[in-house]
Design a protein around this nucleic acid. Structure first.
Lengths: 152, 152
DNA sequence: TGACTCATGTCAGAATTCTGACATAGGTTG
DNA sequence: CAACCTATGTCAGAATTCTGACATGAGTCA
């Protein structure tokens, strides 16, 4: 009655499982980051800046999967706490390139260790081949959903 | 510089990709549900009730990956709009079994069609074998993160 | 050059979700 | 039976994120 050919069976739905996995991952990350007084978005922002210094507010927002307004709020807090710096005026256009301070880098280091432990735990029991397969499949899903044709 | 052996390289991180996939999926679902005046959590709740009638508030919350307080707010709205019904008093304990009304069922039907189109699009380009592999891998991740053991 | 379009940073208010707290029901254990 | 523990439903307030809106800078095109 619930799946008469038209329903979405949650027990076998990849979308539902994806949401569950994401939820569990987020909870696990929050758990290890809480003792450091850091949220997941918080950490994502610092990690992005470490790997790609000089990212703008909007670029950080896209990388952390939040709106640029949300990232702006976070950046203002991080700036106030001395974890990141932004020039008072934009070198070009309106884009303000953001950079980690030494303090932000130290803060990130501890967080990275914690997050890495979660990622290692998540990958436990998966072979390298399986991990590569998972990577490819997730990318396929993302690509299919992004380049979406207009709804039929 | 960014991954001196200790960093988490976002470009190759399965956790990051998982978050991205989940984000894109959510956006795609919101896009098709918006014309129906329905949110993802909204839809999740109705779909859960269709497949497992009589679920309690707390069980629905776990199934939709939100807190029971959040689900309670949603259920009160759905009840007010006549999409679900709950008995005034608990048959046993404090648990209030929730059920879809005919109206809720009709509302869900439209949403299911929309969500199904997203899921189909997401799976485009994946063979049945790949889908089965993805399913197994996601379950493995969830299991490993839940029971902190290395699932090896 | 001027009009148009797009992306950005930012402020403000709304919506959503969460954390904290409380009372109550049921099971467990001594 | 009594004490304890867990789970549930619910209220209230806080935190987070989002949508709407505006001004500005850069690129495009006629």
């Amino acid at each position: 009655m619930s799946q008469d050919g038209v329903g979405v069976d949650l027990k076998t739905s990849l979308g539902y499982l994806l949401k569950e996995a994401s939820s569990v991952l987020r909870a696990a990350m929050e758990e290890v980051l809480r003792p450091l007084g850091m949220s997941v978005t918080h950490y994502s922002c610092l990690e992005l800046l470490a790997q790609r210094p000089g990212l703008s507010n909007s670029e950080l927002a896209r990388g952390a999967f939040v709106t640029r307004q949300t990232m702006n709020v976070l950046l203002q807090a991080l700036e106030r706490e001395g974890h990141v710096t932004r020039p008072a005026e934009a070198p070009v256009g309106k884009v303000l390139p953001t950079r980690l301070t030494p303090r932000g880098r130290r803060s990130l280091e501890k967080a990275t260790v914690a997050v890495r432990s979660v990622e290692v735990r998540m990958l436990a029991g998966m072979t390298e081949t399986e991990q590569a397969g998972a990577f490819r499949i997730l990318q396929s899903m993302i690509h299919s959903l992004r380049d979406g044709n207009d709804g039929a």
